[in-house]
Design a protein around this nucleic acid. Structure first.
Lengths: 234, 234
DNA sequence: TGTCGATTTCTTGTCGACAAATAAAATGCA
DNA sequence: TGCATTTTATTTGTCGACAAGAAATCGACA
């Protein structure tokens, strides 16, 4: 066996392990492959990725810093739960960040930003056309994240991305059971938002973003109450 | 020597090491004991705290997650620089978060919150009385952080605390050289803010917070331009 | 049979050491 | 002397192992 060359070679660049684990765990958490409350086992991950626990732990520390996992000292670590009791705080933050980032995008965007935003919008429209709810969720988040980037305020971008992540989890939770399709109306509203950003109309951007966000909030609340009714009926 | 009991005993609870290093480094960074750009040496910290590099690295990963240090892969890690070129993004975020957190505090605060807020205000007033600029900076930040807590929106609290931290660094930078004293006016404005929060007057809270924040921004900008003039004069 | 306590098991936090990557120093050559 | 290249040194990223803490299991006793 000529294993002197191929054997026991990690085949992996130094420092890439953490990012790999981080990215994958993050995706699995946001896509609810790992639902809230799922236990996270370090040794299991270490075996799965064929690396020691050290880089695994670093990835977990970073995820904990973003609030995606909760770590009890000397005890288990698990995927963070969704706080349904204080959902209104999430809605408040969502609406405000939609408004602020869209407003700033209208103010500070550069031509190349619009191209990126339009590309995301095209993907979102395609997802709506295909009635692929999960793709809608992801592309919608990417669309608004791109708008936030165009606003060029790192503080707002960071918070907004965090909120969009949480929103992805919440929507994913409902679209597991309900194959509702986001209406074509959202696509049209996105087009309007792009138009006012391109026209640098900050007030209109604020107004449209507010309406748009409130509609999304309303939709989530509708799903939420429907779910509650089902719980009661059981 | 009866070293069987006292020797080689870490005298430190399991898991407390990370927090200790994290807290201390954080304070030293915010107080500019470690100025922006300072190199951070893992082994040096390990020797200083008499522990291995593992808990040190965990603390550093967390600090990096909060943007307080920058880590170049395979190279040095250092205290994050202050982005003077995009200071306006900081000001935008500061003003908005002042407004939102104060508004929410007026809306959602409980009686015990007011006690905490008033206690911080007393400390701030004492610092102003003593003309202790550094204490003013710290107690002012604590005062507004307490207001944010009373607003009970974890998303806004997290971002606001991050902004207040950055503000502490910026102010500290100027108050190293200039012994300006924050005016008594700020103490009075704080009192007004407390009053409208207690009265649950959200609109007045918003308005006062906006004015208050803009004054602080203006003051920082004044220090900033003065510093620039000195740079030119040299 | 149920409850309390001791023991075992399992997971996490820490350690010391090694290897890779980069920076710094030293050497060779024109 | 100046530049390129090799060598050394320093620092980071990763590893395997061990110890502490908590949960689970087991057993003794009422």
């Amino acid at each position: 066996m000529t294993d002197t060359e191929t054997n026991s070679v990690p085949e992996r660049k130094r420092g890439s392990g953490v990012k790999m684990v981080y990215d994958l765990l993050r995706d699995e958490i946001l896509d609810l492959v790992l639902p809230p409350g799922s236990p996270i086992d370090e040794v299991q991950l270490a075996e799965r990725f064929k690396m020691s626990r050290t880089p695994i732990r670093e990835a977990l520390v970073r995820l904990a810093g973003e609030g995606l996992i909760d770590t009890l000292p000397n005890r288990s670590t698990m995927v963070a739960n969704i706080d349904f009791l204080n959902m209104h705080t999430f809605f408040d933050a969502l609406v405000l960040m939609y408004r602020v980032t869209t407003r700033l995008a209208a103010q500070y965007h550069r031509p190349e930003d619009l191209q990126v935003i339009r590309a995301h919008q095209a993907e979102f429209a395609a997802a709506v056309q295909a009635q692929d709810a999960l793709a809608m969720i992801a592309t919608n988040a990417a669309f608004h994240s791109a708008i936030a980037e165009a606003g060029r305020n790192p503080y707002f971008v960071a918070l907004f991305n965090r909120i969009l992540d949480e929103g992805r989890r919440i929507l994913r939770l409902y679209y597991q059971s309900y194959e509702d399709r986001l209406p074509q109306q959202y696509v049209d509203e996105h087009e309007e938002i792009i138009a006012v950003i391109a026209a640098r109309d900050t007030e209109a951007a604020d107004r449209l973003a507010k309406t748009h966000a409130e509609q999304i909030v309303h939709q989530i609340q509708k799903l939420f109450t429907r779910e509650q009714r089902l719980d009661i009926a059981l």
